[in-house]
Simulated assay, not measured.
Amino acid sequence: MDRIERVTLSTVRLPLPAAISDAKVLTGRQRPMTEVMMLFAEIGTADGHTGTGFGYAKRAGGPAQFAHAVEIAPDLIGEDPNDIGRLWTKLVWAGASVGRSGAATQAIAALDVALWDLKARRAGLPLAKLLGAYRDSVRCYDTSGGFLHAPVAEVIDNATRNLALGVGGIKIKVGHPDPETDLARVREVRSRLGDDVPLMVDANQQWDRPTAQRMGRALEEFGLVWIEEPLDAYDAAGHAELARSLDTAIASGEMLTSVGEHAELIRHGAVDVIQPDAPRIGGITQFLRLAALAEQHHLTLAPHFAMEIHVHLAAAYPHEPWVEHFDWLHPLFDERPAIRDGRIHLSTRPGLGVTISERARAWTVDRAEIHQR
Rank of each mutant, 00 (worst) to 15 (best):
E42A: 11
A120V: 00
E241D: 15
T11W: 11
I77E: 06
G145A: 05
G223I: 01
I4A: 08
V152E: 00
Q213A: 13
V225D: 06
D232R: 12
V225K: 11
L125P: 11
E358I: 00
G48M: 01
F54T: 05
G145I: 03
S144D: 13
K119G: 01
Q275I: 06
A19N: 06
A294T: 01
A46N: 11
R267S: 14
S252E: 10
P177Y: 05
G269I: 04
A362M: 04
A306W: 05
T34Y: 01
P151F: 13
Q106K: 15
A73R: 03
D327Y: 10
P303S: 05
P318T: 05
A291M: 05
K129L: 10
R214E: 13
R217W: 00
L242M: 02
Y56N: 09
V365A: 06
V365P: 10
G28L: 09
A306R: 04
I172Y: 04
P210R: 05
A315E: 04
E154H: 10
H149C: 10
I172K: 06
A218T: 02
V311S: 02
A133E: 15
H325F: 15
H310Y: 02
L87P: 11
L265N: 08
R29M: 10
E254V: 05
L301N: 04
V167P: 12
G51H: 06
A60I: 12
V201A: 03
R349F: 03
V25Y: 07
E42V: 12
V201D: 03
D157Y: 01
P350D: 00
R289L: 10
L118H: 07
E220V: 07
P126M: 01
R244T: 09
